[in-house]
Design a protein around this nucleic acid. Structure first.
Length: 513
RNA sequence: GGCCCCAUGGUCUAGCGGUUAGGACGUUGGCCUCUCACGCCGAAAUCCCGGGUUCAAGUCCCGGUGGGGUCACCA
């Protein structure tokens, strides 16, 4: 097999002097982001995307969007569409991807299954991988035993690797027995790779690496296999991703070696954090890109803010454009620590950026986004039967705008008969959590929300009337509003999520009743 | 718990052996002003700890501590 594919005219950027090259790897670079379409488009994807995009633009390379939809359980086409929409909104345009195509497609992993199977066959043949016939039950039992024994290494015990002969393995597979294919990690020694952001070699002893499943029993590849095969076939020269991947990089390196391919250069960026320093999560912080879009941040503000989370121009300027970031970009200017995503600072910058707009530009933004005709009409449908004068329309529909609400004026209404404060808080949290897990309700369409909510009532023991009243108060801070589910749909998932959490916080600060 | 990563005010960062440790958000005092906001001026607040290297350490090395990640037929 040939070495890593190099784009035409590619050259290796080496520093003539001593030490590491100023720009490692093959130039111009081909980089990618590979989001999994399993939920709302995440700011973490945008964050990693920004650095990939900037690096590609800096050196005249290509920025590729690849959809990693190998999880049949969780991947949805609507999520994929949302990712594309969100990245487009931010202006992180890709050169190759599932929508625009490109020379190394297809760019959706579910359309590349044959490729993965063929490559797995190669590994099986070369002895770098083996079939595993262990059942879920056995795997669970092994894990439980390891946990109980407080074993320092958790992971597969290598049962099929040791006990199933090559002939047996092939025969059982031919007979149609369900199995996975695992990577055969070498027994002694270690595997290391150079992290070009940290400018350091990171090593892992083979004993600490699990025999990773490469091909699931449903015939779909896992991330590790698909990622390596695709990065190679797509000519990816630099893998710029989050540091949650550091521990699996040795598996990837071993795969490159098994295939006889040259591995790309790795850069692992720090993970975005909540205020409490845990990994950014929607429980504690808005993480959907749509949240930032729908609550009215300018893409340039968000991009600039994310850029400063790890990158700096090198002087005191921190307000800069993506083009300025490209002009000044250098890996030595990128910090490896995981930064806290502080919404207060984003808000301050957003305020400053809005003030810097001309009135005409501000007007255009408001008309296009806040008062977009479709959105306004959807609200007018509900305002029409309820207002007496045109001038009352705006105050009436005001619940659909803005972020957090003040619940102090309706404090007394929140005391539902027979429901304690804690029970009220609990039901709000349960509801918010359950809605994320429901594939229908997640779409936030009125009918789906209603069906879900009625079902939720049955499960939780709350009457529809009392729960719906509570939700109306949470979402609008009013006792009178359009039908609840229309209201929620129009306000949108992110605004509702924000307000539900806002009410929980408000109630927690109240004395028990 | 094993392994791995990270470490400058509360937060994001500048610093790349010698600085009164700079900027921004936040907090706070004041000015401006019909209110608020903006704007302007000021203040408090940081090099995690311990060794080592060096004439000299926030800066280099080691250890500790703390935080984070990861240990799935999820990515």
């Amino acid at each position: 097999m040939s070495a890593a594919a190099s784009p035409e005219g590619a050259s290796r950027a080496e520093d003539a002097g001593a030490g590491a090259p100023a720009v490692p790897g093959i130039l111009p670079p081909r980089v990618r982001i590979a989001p999994s379409p399993t939920g709302d488009p995440h700011v973490g994807t945008a964050y990693i995307g920004l650095f990939n995009y900037v690096f590609a633009r800096k050196h005249g390379g290509q920025f590729i969007l690849r959809i990693e939809d190998t999880d049949q359980e969780r991947s949805t086409t609507s999520s994929e569409a949302a990712i594309l929409e969100a990245l487009r909104w931010l202006g992180l345009t890709w050169d190759e991807g599932p929508d625009v195509g490109g020379p190394r497609g297809p760019y959706r992993q579910s359309e590349r299954l044959e490729l993965y199977r063929a490559h797995v066959a190669r590994l099986l043949e070369s002895g770098h991988a083996y079939r595993c016939f262990c059942t879920r039950e056995r795997l669970d039992a092994v894990r439980q035993a390891q946990l109980a024994a407080k074993s320092s290494h958790l992971g597969y015990d290598g049962h099929c690797r040791r006990t199933v002969s090559a002939a047996d393995s092939a025969a059982r597979a031919a007979a149609g027995e369900a199995h996975t294919v695992r990577l055969k990690i070498p027994e002694g020694g270690e595997t290391s790779f150079f992290d070009h952001l940290r400018r350091e070699t990171i090593s892992f002893a083979h004993e600490t690496i699990d025999d990773q499943v490469l091909l699931k029993s449903d015939g779909f590849p896992t991330y590790h296999l698909a990622n390596v095969v695709d990065d190679h076939l797509m000519g990816i020269t630099h893998v710029i991703r989050g540091e949650e991947w550091i521990t699996s990089t040795p598996k990837h390196v071993l795969l490159y070696q098994a295939f006889g391919w040259e591995a790309p250069c790795f850069f692992h960026l720090g993970l975005l954090r909540n205020l409490d320093r845990s990994k950014l999560s929607k429980r504690k912080n808005p993480v959907s890109i749509f949240h930032y879009r729908d609550l009215g941040y300018l893409p340039a503000t968000l991009l600039n803010f994310m850029a400063t989370l790890g990158f700096s121009l090198g002087d005191d300027r921190e307000r800069f454009t993506v083009d300025e970031m490209i002009a000044h970009f250098d890996w030595s200017r990128v910090h490896a620590g995981g930064p806290v995503f502080d919404p207060a600072k984003l808000d301050a910058w957003s305020a400053a950026d809005l003030r810097a707009l001309s009135i005409d530009a501000l007007h255009a933004e408001v008309m296009a986004r806040v008062l977009a005709p479709e959105r306004l009409k959807a609200l007018l449908v509900h305002a029409q039967p309820r207002v007496d004068r045109l001038d009352d329309v705006i105050p009436y529909i005001s619940f659909a705008f803005g972020g957090a609400l003040d619940y102090a004026p309706i404090k007394d209404k929140l005391r539902l008969k027979g429901r304690s404060r804690d029970a009220t808080v609990a039901v709000l949290e349960d509801y918010a959590q359950a809605i994320e897990k429901d594939p229908e309700a997640r779409t936030f369409e009125a009918a789906a929300l209603e069906a879900f909510s009625r079902g939720f009532c049955e499960r939780s023991g709350w009457k529809a009337k009392e729960l719906f009243t509570l939700l109306r108060l949470a979402v609008t801070a009013r006792t009178a509003a359009p039908p609840l589910f229309d209201t929620m749909a129009i306000c949108g998932k992110d605004r509702c999520r924000l307000r539900l959490r806002g009410l929980v916080e408000f109630l927690r600060a109240e004395p028990e009743w």
